[in-house]
Design a protein around this nucleic acid. Structure first.
Length: 424
RNA sequence: CCGUGGGAAGCCCAGAGGUAGGGCAGCGGACUGUAAAUCCGCGGUGCUUGCACGUGCAGGUUCGACUCCUGCCCCACGGACCA
């Protein structure tokens, strides 16, 4: 009851903002969290296991939550889990993760860590600057017997197998390897470590992390020493689009936050072509715009919503890629979808040709407008492809470099894929 | 380890010797607003565009195999062992 009250009328700006922007799914002790956030700077952390080569939109909810709390004066710790990535989190998975080799993990950590600076304030000398830590530095030197004696004694297997992640595996009689069974202990230990060494009292994460997070809270209650008061955790809802799908996956692949994997232009396009029904939620979650302003913007109806989507796309692109890239992407989108002949701002992709067939052009690695040549032929024949505004329906048409100007040709493939292609 | 049933395109399922069919998702077109809805089309892959390869993997029988046979892998259920 107290929880409900604290969530409805939070005293802290931080919790109030999290709640009204839809970041809160479940909290360990809402009233206490609210009080802690109202009283002063809280140090909190979110862990990322470097199991993918880059961050993508699916990771962005957590990043935005950190950003938001930091702007309310609290201090984020980004925990890169290159130690826990060596173990493999079974949460939400029906099978064991593929074991990643050490080089892959280290390379991914390097790449991912660079990117948090785009979203979080770091290195300014302020007390709430974000810090990045890597749990390999403490997990890597653990000694097994000592770990079992200090940490393992506080976990009962009875309790562990009751948690959702493990229970699902056991109920379905799917294999649960011992290494995975250890994962929860390591994540709990991470929290304890950060509590002891960084005064970290709150862990945030996706809703699938609840079990792991609450086990850390309990571990701290038992042996944390209480120097920094009790520990808490808070989970975010899994964000889905209006048609019930996970954010950040499209036909052409994941929406990466790194420019080498997805151009700022394509990133911008992802946001601008979202469903009307998602605009408000996306603005609340992925931009810094004040809630009042968002409500005002979302009063737009019909075609006027396009402008709101452009704003959404601009804000999100600015955050991930910077002001200049966002500006360029916006200009490029205006050119590519504005009906004019000038596509100079649209990023050019180079395709070798001497000459090249239309079907090979649209399926070339740099373009990949269609998933296979077979599909490309069918789409071309049904009128999906235009060059410089003219429909081209012959997949075998040969395109000669000398027919096109040096600045490239304007390629439309389907309704949303548009490229400036320089062939030759 | 034994027995039974089953693996088919992103997902669900029909086909039980005659050359892979339906539903959903998806994609494309029209209409629009780079949205939704609706209508129409596509519906595994490759390429030399009418041909080749495609029903877990590898063989075999057959004019012809998703279908029958052998071996292997994986999944579900039941049993044995651990007890």
């Amino acid at each position: 009851m107290e929880d409900v009250e604290a969530l409805k009328h939070p005293r802290s700006k931080a919790l109030e903002t999290l709640v009204e922007r839809g970041f809160v799914e479940q909290v360990s002790d809402a009233a206490a969290i609210d009080q802690a956030l109202a009283e002063g700077m809280v140090t909190f952390y979110i862990g990322y296991d470097p199991t993918a080569p880059s961050l993508h939109v699916g990771n962005l909810v957590c990043i935005m939550a950190m950003r938001l709390l930091q702007r309310c004066g609290h201090r984020p710790i980004v925990l890169l889990g290159s130690g826990t990535a060596r173990v493999g989190d079974p949460s939400g998975r029906s099978d064991t993760r593929k074991m990643l080799d050490e080089q892959t993990i280290d390379a991914q950590v390097q790449k991912i860590s660079e990117h948090f600076g785009h979203f979080l304030q770091m290195g300014t000398g302020a007390p709430n600057d974000a810090v990045v830590v890597d749990n390999q530095s403490w997990l890597g030197e653990l000694r097994y017997i000592e770990f079992l004696r200090e940490i393992g004694v506080h976990f009962t297997v009875n309790r562990m197998i009751a948690t959702k992640t493990y229970r699902e595996r056991l109920d379905q009689e799917l294999p649960l390897s011992f290494i995975e069974f250890n994962y929860q202990l390591f994540q709990a230990y991470d929290f304890l470590h950060l509590y002891r060494h960084h005064g970290c009292t709150m862990q945030l994460g996706g809703s699938d992390q609840w079990g792991n997070m609450i086990s850390g809270v309990e571990l701290i209650r038992r042996i944390g020493g209480g120097d920094h008061g009790p520990a808490y955790c808070l989970t975010f809802p899994l964000l889905t689009t209006a048609d019930g799908r996970k954010m950040g996956k499209t036909q052409r692949g994941a929406i990466w936050l790194h420019a080498e994997q997805l151009s700022p232009f394509d990133y911008f396009q992802y946001w601008v072509s979202c469903d009307d029904a998602d605009v408000r939620k996306l603005l609340l979650t992925f931009t810094d715009l004040p809630k009042d302003e968002i409500e005002e913007l979302c009063r737009a109806e019909g075609a006027a919503l396009r402008d709101v989507k452009r704003r959404l796309a601009y804000e999100t692109t600015r955050m991930a890629h910077g002001e200049e890239a966002a500006h360029n992407a916006q200009q490029a989108a205006a050119q590519a979808f504005g009906g004019g002949d000038d596509w100079s701002a649209v990023p050019a992709v180079g395709v070798p040709a001497d000459p090249i067939k239309l079907v090979d052009l649209v399926t070339h690695d740099a373009v990949r407008a269609f998933p296979s040549k077979r599909a490309a032929r069918q789409r071309i024949e049904s009128g999906a492809v235009r060059i410089d505004g003219e429909p081209r329906t012959d997949p075998n048409e040969e395109l000669h470099p000398e027919e096109f100007p040096a600045e490239g040709l304007r390629l439309q493939a389907g309704k949303r894929c548009r490229f400036r292609v320089v062939i030759g």
